[in-house]
Amino acid sequence: MNLLSIMFRRNGSAPVARDRLQVLLAHERAFVGKSDLLAVLQEEIIAVIAKHVTIERDKVQVKLDRGDTVSTLEIDVEVPGAAATAAKLALEGARPAMAGGF
């Protein structure tokens, strides 16, 4: 620690880097070799919906937000013919709990 660093101490970006890495790697480790999980989920969910209503495959949007304690998997399915009935499924906690502590 030198004089200048004491005089101009400011909030560092390293803690942000550490937190981002911890969240990211917890997910990556849990899903090694299962990288197509999203695709599988999407397929199965669409199959269930398709049993009951007619849907177009390319009108399905999947979004994922990896959070620290909870992740959100959001699937938008546009049901044709009835504009107002676009189904929105938000599956909270679709991902299993993170493996172990950091």
Binding site: M1, N2, S5, R9, R10, N11, G12, S13, A14, P15, A17, R18, L21, Q22, L25, F102
Partner: peptide, 18 residues
């Protein structure tokens, strides 16, 4: 080490913990 002490760079402990 100076930048790590200032919080500008990941510390050794951070990398080891991860």
């Amino acid at each position: 080490p100076i930048r790590a002490a200032r919080g500008e760079m990941l510390k050794t402990e951070d990398v080891l913990e991860i």
